[in-house]
Design a protein around this nucleic acid. Structure first.
Length: 197
DNA sequence: ATAAAGATCATT
DNA sequence: ATGATCTTTATG
């Protein structure tokens, strides 16, 4: 069943990041349904987190979306090529977010392969934040959409997951000491987790 | 108006 | 380790 606002409005963003592991991220655009099991996430704890776009309460046109109520999609463009998908958490005006870093393909795999311009299923189909958005057809124009009311949603399909591992977030060295915090979570030994760089 | 950086990825 | 590629943001 689809996750509701009560799931997303949890005040503990690290807790949500871990609970998202094993849930299924689904998009349904133009009748094409694609989905994947979330296997890797990162928590961004708003104003107190030097790695967050909302650090120190920064509000810009882009980051404004993070101040919406939990259960909103925050998608932004980075490095001139990639859209990264985040789940906004906590209540309105508290800019917490969870970056979805990797999924394991579940539904519509042929369409995911086509969107990625691959020949067949390879490890790089959706193991990385910039790759899974391509595979699911997510772009910046989806930023601000409700995960409860739009064609992007997250479902609990009662998938049991094994142990959770944690470590520092990727590519946030600009965050000083906050770069050392263990706010990246993944399903232990899952082959679809992104390559750590 | 300009410049610099960036929650990445593929390749060497 | 480096290059591709361009939006967002800060600064002047």
């Amino acid at each position: 069943m689809k996750l509701d606002y009560s799931f997303y409005q949890n005040p503990d963003v690290e807790d949500v990041a871990q609970k998202l592991l094993g849930k299924v991220l689904v998009t349904q655009f133009n009748g094409i349904l694609t989905s994947g099991k979330i296997v890797e996430t990162e928590a961004y704890a708003g104003p107190q987190d030097k790695a967050s776009h909302a650090y120190n309460g920064r509000r810009t046109k882009r980051t404004e979306i993070m101040y919406r109520e939990g259960g909103t999609a925050y998608v932004y463009f980075i490095y001139g090529m990639y859209a990264l998908f985040n789940v906004v958490t906590n209540v309105k005006d508290i800019p917490h977010a969870v970056l979805i870093r990797a999924i394991e393909p579940v539904d519509g795999i042929e369409n995911m392969i086509r969107r990625r311009k691959l020949k067949d299923v390879k490890h790089n189909l959706c193991a990385g934040p910039g790759l899974l958005t391509q595979a699911l057809g997510i772009t910046t124009k989806h930023s601000g959409l409700s995960l409860i009311k739009s064609n992007i949603r997250i479902e609990d399909r009662n998938i049991k997951i094994s142990d959770i591992s944690s470590g520092p977030r990727i590519n946030v060295d600009y965050a000083g000491d906050d770069a050392l915090l263990h706010r990246r979570f993944w399903i232990k030994q899952n082959p679809w987790v992104s390559k750590a760089r």
